[in-house]
Design a protein around this nucleic acid. Sequence first.
DNA 1: GACGTCTTGTGAATTTCTTCACAAATTACG
DNA 2: CGTAATTTGTGAAGAAATTCACAAGACGTC
Lengths: 208, 208
Amino acid sequence: MKRIAESTVRRLSLYLRFLEDFEKRSIGTISSDELAARGSTTSAQVRKDLSFFGSFGKRGLGYSVPELLARLRQILGLDHEWHVVIVGAGKIGAALAQYRGFSQRGFRIVALYDSDPEKVGRTVDGLQIRPMSALTAESHHHRPDIAVLAVPATAAQEVADIVVAAGVRAILNFAPQQLQVPDTVALKEVNMAIELEGLSFALTNLRM
Amino acid sequence: MKRIAESTVRRLSLYLRFLEDFEKRSIGTISSDELAARGSTTSAQVRKDLSFFGSFGKRGLGYSVPELLARLRQILGLDHEWHVVIVGAGKIGAALAQYRGFSQRGFRIVALYDSDPEKVGRTVDGLQIRPMSALTAESHHHRPDIAVLAVPATAAQEVADIVVAAGVRAILNFAPQQLQVPDTVALKEVNMAIELEGLSFALTNLRM
DNA sequence: GACGTCTTGTGAATTTCTTCACAAATTACG
DNA sequence: CGTAATTTGTGAAGAAATTCACAAGACGTC
């Protein structure tokens, strides 16, 4: 299969969200134009994005909402459960552990780790915080697919190495630290500083 | 000035971070190659990115770390203070209010708002939570440049309209809801669901 | 001060991504 | 059944981003 651009995958996620909304409102059919309007893109872009995976629409009619929903879920790999471990039970880690969006979309949090002995043993949203030192051993049992890192920047690379060694194949990094991982491991960085600086740049350079 | 790509601005933020690190380690000079290695990009990319704004290096030598730092800060608009309001004092909003990275980089949180009367009046990190209804009036005084939205998805668009009307010209949106804003307003979305789905896609399609 | 080594800055080439534009398919309707 | 109105799927064109490649400048050394 041809390589799919990251921008395409991001848009597929958006389309999925819009379709869920359309389904909730019992709309059975949707055109690429209507989908595009919701995501500030163009109908051609929507059709091109979908065309990488097959042809799901009916000419003259549009796309069946439930059908396209199912196809998108399948394409994005949301048709089965992923095991997630969260590392770091500070403010961000705890907020993530309680975030409903995870389980809603088939991401099951199987464990929450922290290296601080003070925090170990406490419970967050029904999940007991485990010591960092237990991660490797417990991973044989939990078989995590994805690790979410919510640790200080200074610890991030070390933790990344540990979870990769423990068999995790995807990392979502909230620490403000650029990580190095083998290219067999998928990596996404969420970095508020970068977003803020992007806004600062826009405020400085665009208009005024 | 030519339009600068978003990807370029993101990389400038990264370079800034690396340079801060080099400065801390008292490294006086850096080559585009060394900068590239830290950010998994290429030296040509680094030089091209910088070339949009001038020529800051010395052939045969590289870039002066303090000088390039200063120039990048200026380019990104980090050479003066921005006023930030946070809307939503739930888990995420509260965590953001306490996040040290804001003030460290010249983003001053001038107010924290919530519509829940239960939360109004409480203090988060020395900042009293104000009622949402006061935002418009108080903005005349605070003159916020940036609004950070940490509200439920269902409220996000309404809040966005309010802050835009109150004079905010940049929005950082943490709500899982695609916002519509006038194109005079800069907008960044941080959406964990999209990142997770990107990882799910990678796990499903790449290898295995 | 000439020579060798290094690294920038930047047009040109290449690759990637988006938009255009239109034939083909489907429905609606008289 | 035929015609008008839609809307998809997709090659081709266009735009944007990245990489190449090399002349020009700067330093170190003898």
